[in-house]
């Protein structure tokens, strides 16, 4: 497969300069790298600018409800675990509206890859604070600045035992595509939080702001992503320096392993024409 096979005919509705373009390109590169056919790849999304991404790539797409991409993705993966399932979501969709699903799907550990386009602001609703907006940031609603502590998704994911926790930067598409490739290859739930400037509504966390701060954590050969305590410290780093890269990784049993899904037919391949329940009815005698 080459990158042209992934070209969608749908017209892109993002603002010029949106960080989502870099994420889209990184997704395409990663899919070329893993070399699966578009028919075997499913993108699932909720609502927000990030959720439109699946339309701009030629793979299967289920664009569902705000906050509910994860359960839909997990349902699809359980029904057909041969699909490579990727969720594209945002800081509002995944960390706000769908927060409960994030918690429990990290626990569930179904083999899906979740890419959170984290621009630290609500774009589609025009500029309100998101769960990751920095303290003090003023918006039309948070007129005196944000007073809620920002959610720390990477720390949270590590604490919950997520087996693959990474942070990318949308302007570094090459690095991000490596993270997405690794996330897809990782067996189990992979969370990739992507720093993404919003050119329309986030006047603080801009390209310039990030360019001064981000550094690649894996460039340091001594950094061990399997060291949970070190990973937790790294995940908490936010200010003058912001680490990107594979922060934490731990192989663990997936939902599919624990369910023994690989030992039986795909649910969608079961012949259901004539389910014989006579024995079961007999048990009600």
């Amino acid at each position: 497969m080459n990158i042209n096979d992934l070209k969608s005919n749908d017209e892109i509705a993002w603002c010029p300069g949106c960080g989502d373009f870099g994420i889209l390109n990184a997704c395409k590169k990663a899919l070329v790298a893993i070399d699966r056919q578009p028919k075997d790849i499913l993108f699932v999304s909720g609502i927000g600018q990030a959720a439109k991404l699946p339309h701009y790539i030629r793979c299967n797409c289920f664009n569902g409800l705000h906050g509910r991409a994860l359960p839909a993705a997990v349902g699809a993966k359980i029904a057909n675990h041969n699909l490579t399932v990727i969720v594209t979501t945002g800081d509002g969709d995944c960390y706000g509206e769908g927060g409960n699903h994030l918690l429990h799907n990290i626990r569930r550990n179904v083999d899906i890859t979740v890419i959170v386009c984290n621009n630290q602001i609500y774009g589609l609703t025009k500029g309100q604070a998101s769960p990751t907006t920095d303290l003090g940031y003023e918006t039309k609603v948070q007129v005196d600045g944000v007073i809620l502590e920002p959610l720390h998704p990477l720390e949270m994911a590590i604490a919950l035992g997520c087996g693959f926790v990474a942070r990318g930067y949308s302007a570094d598409s090459e690095h991000l595509s490596w993270l997405i490739t690794e996330g897809i290859k990782h067996k189990g739930f992979s969370l990739i939080d992507v720093l993404q400037p919003c050119v329309s509504f986030n006047k603080k966390n801009t390209y310039e702001w990030y360019a001064k701060r981000v550094y690649k954590v894996n460039a340091d050969a001594s950094y061990n992503p399997q060291d949970k305590a070190a990973a937790y410290q790294k995940a908490a780093e936010w200010g003058e320096r912001i680490p990107i890269g594979l922060i934490y990784r731990q192989e663990k049993k997936t939902y599919e392993d624990r369910r023994g899904l690989n030992e039986s037919n795909l649910l969608i391949d079961e012949d259901i024409k004539d389910m014989d329940i006579r024995k079961e009815l007999g048990e009600f005698f």
Binding site: L42, L65, R68, G75, I78, A79, N80, I268
Partner: peptide, 17 residues
């Protein structure tokens, strides 16, 4: 909410749910 969205996802993928 998760229940019905999982069911919808599984059904979209092709399993009666």
């Amino acid at each position: 909410i998760a229940a019905i969205n999982m069911v919808i996802g599984a059904s979209f993928a092709g399993a009666r749910s």
